[in-house]
């Protein structure tokens, strides 16, 4: 039993860590711009296709992951300047715009790549066997990278000037502006960074699963559950919520089954909404 619990925990932590990457960008964009970017899953999808295309051109996996994510981030900046800046602070309008963009991006992927499942060559093979717990190396890599990226993101927000300005804008945009922060710059930067994180998550998961135009839907759904769980706009909430969701899912679906697990997770979310409407960690960036 102890052995099984350890395996459940490891599985949950690894899948949870990838949920966190998607949720972080989603919650940050919502915190800074008051925009619920429901196209966030499609930026994840683009990151996965980015890795696929770049490795097809002979690039190594890691350069492809990085370059792909940067391209996705840059595309996010363009989308913010073209579309999202007009709906900042108007959550319903933003939601509709994002849903529209999501449909368009999926359709574009379908036109360009077709409905087929594409595979990205795995950077590592094999399974790490620790006796009681076995972890495939590629998942270990994904988990490690995800935690590394979380740490970098934390340092960025805490110790850099732009990171500080992002937190300030999230808390009080007008007062941040009179300190000399240009809000439009922070909006574009935050949106781009959020999309870059989603792109990284997509690129990390691409070799684990397959790539098709609809792969963004599932992580988007998870990210939404996580930010409700952790508190909309809350960075610590996204981390705690993501890991909690990963572990809860792993626990329930190993010990009971997948369907019951989905139900129980949903029940957990409803419970949080009723007991703590502001989420586990409240709203602060």
């Amino acid at each position: 039993m102890g052995q099984l619990l350890a395996q459940i925990l490891v599985n949950g932590l690894i899948s949870g860590s990838t949920y966190v990457l998607v949720a972080l960008g989603f919650t940050m964009i919502s915190g800074i711009m008051r925009v619920l970017n429901f196209a966030h899953g499609e930026f994840y999808m683009m990151g996965a296709y980015g890795v696929y295309v770049l490795t097809q051109y002979g690039l190594g996996y890691f350069p492809a992951l990085l370059i792909g994510a940067i391209i996705v981030g840059a595309f996010g900046v363009v989308m913010e300047r073209l579309i999202f800046r007009w709906v900042i602070g108007r959550e319903v309008n933003g939601l509709i715009v994002a849903l529209g963009l999501s449909v368009v991006l999926k359709a574009l992927a379908l036109i360009i790549f077709g409905p087929v499942e594409l595979a990205v060559t795995r950077p590592v093979h094999g399974t790490l066997d620790l006796g009681s717990v076995s972890i495939p190396y590629d998942r270990l890599l994904v988990g490690g990278c995800a935690f590394g990226i979380m740490l970098l993101f934390y340092f960025f927000l805490t110790f850099t000037r732009v990171g500080l300005a992002m937190r300030a804008v999230a808390q009080d945009e007008k007062i941040a502006a009179i300190q000399g922060v240009r809000p439009s710059f922070i909006h574009a930067a935050a949106f781009g960074l959020g999309c870059l994180l989603a792109g990284l998550a997509g690129g990390l998961m691409a070799p684990i699963y397959t790539v098709n135009p609809t792969i963004g839907e599932l992580p988007m759904g998870k990210a939404f559950v996580i930010v409700i769980l952790g508190g909309l706009g809350s960075i610590p909430g996204a981390v705690v919520g993501g890991l909690l969701l990963g572990i809860a899912e792993s626990f329930f679906s190993t010990l009971i089954d997948g369907t019951v697990s989905a139900m129980l997770v949903f029940a957990l979310v409803v419970l949080v909404i009723i007991v703590r409407p502001q989420g586990l960690m409240g709203r602060s960036l």
């Binding site: 599985n11 899912e249 792993s250 679906s253 190993t254 997948g258 369907t259 697990s261």
Partner: peptide
């Protein structure tokens, strides 16, 4: 006999069992 949700991608928990 296992019934899983169509959206499932991570089968590790189910397969563990």
């Amino acid at each position: 006999k296992e019934l899983y949700e169509r959206s499932t991608k991570d089968f590790q928990p189910i397969l563990t069992r």
